[in-house]
């Protein structure tokens, strides 16, 4: 993140609209009536203490977690509407997980090709070409025929990003993409994400990487106890938070 602030984003119309999302786990209310828009080309960071509901909110976007109440609309399609094929929606909403979740029984290139073949129905040649291009793009072209366990955490996460990108997503969701990484590997993953942001990819990121937020995020959302407490440009939320809870959280996160 040595580069200056990336690209002035073209921020367009909302591509994700969430209205009144609630989700309950047993007796705890993980999400309490949350509404949020994500606009085209936007990089949105969600921060907050653990248990604040940020990951749940992210997982509600592609219905990996079903909200108990509320509405999610992606690119004009309301997910809960009768007859909506969730698989077709998810195909174009990339997701990157904290624990990478590469398929351990497949090689790197097979990991990236599988969904292209059986979901997008591309030819083997086209799938492989796309996979190789993406591997080169995330900087590990030489690992195509390795198995995931033979890669470092940072390399695995870059493969996971490439795997999502292969489906040509309209939006990329990142669920704490660097939390399971050794410190020296965080940068290589963030660099890939920064490149994506520069290219204008719409990204929703749950993460505590404040440096990345300042460098790449258009907006930061601070969540606590299942609610959005505060939302704004990174400078405003980090340097001049309106709420005590935000300030308290930031002082804990930033003091080291």
């Amino acid at each position: 993140m040595d580069d200056a602030k990336p690209i002035p984003h073209y921020i367009g119309t909302p591509i994700i609209t969430m209205k009144g999302i609630s989700r309950r786990f047993g007796h705890t209310l993980a999400l309490d009536n949350v509404s949020l828009d994500v606009r085209r080309g936007e990089v949105l960071m969600i921060v907050g203490p653990s248990g604040s509901g940020k990951s749940t909110l992210l997982r509600c976007i592609n219905y990996l977690e079903l909200p108990d109440a509320g509405m999610v609309e992606i690119d004009g399609v309301v997910l809960s509407r009768h007859g909506v094929d969730l698989n077709r929606i998810r195909e174009h909403v990339g997701m990157v997980f904290q624990r990478f979740e590469l398929f351990p029984h497949l090689t790197v290139i097979q990991n990236i090709m599988l969904a292209q073949r059986i979901v997008a129905k591309r030819s083997p040649q086209a799938s492989e070409q796309i996979a190789r291009d993406l591997l080169a793009k995330v900087g590990i072209g030489e690992k195509a025929d390795s198995y995931p366990v033979q890669l470092s955490g940072g390399q695995q996460q870059r493969v996971a990003i490439a795997r999502s990108l292969a489906m040509q997503p309209k939006v990329m969701l990142f669920d704490e993409p660097t939390s399971a990484l050794d410190p020296e590997m965080i940068k290589e993953v963030l660099d890939v994400m920064l490149d994506l942001a520069r290219e204008g990819m719409t990204m929703v990121i749950v993460s505590h990487e404040m440096g990345f937020a300042r460098a790449a995020a258009n907006r930061v959302v601070f969540m606590d106890q299942g609610r959005i407490v505060e939302m704004g440009a990174p400078e405003q939320v980090f340097d001049n938070p309106h709420h005590d809870r935000t300030r308290l959280f930031l002082s804990k996160v930033l003091q080291h």
Partner: peptide, 15 residues
């Protein structure tokens, strides 16, 4: 098999 495996597959659009 860990739940995350199925989630990753579903998030790629697999049935």
């Amino acid at each position: 098999i860990e739940r995350g495996q199925a989630e990753a597959a579903r998030s790629l659009g697999m049935s």
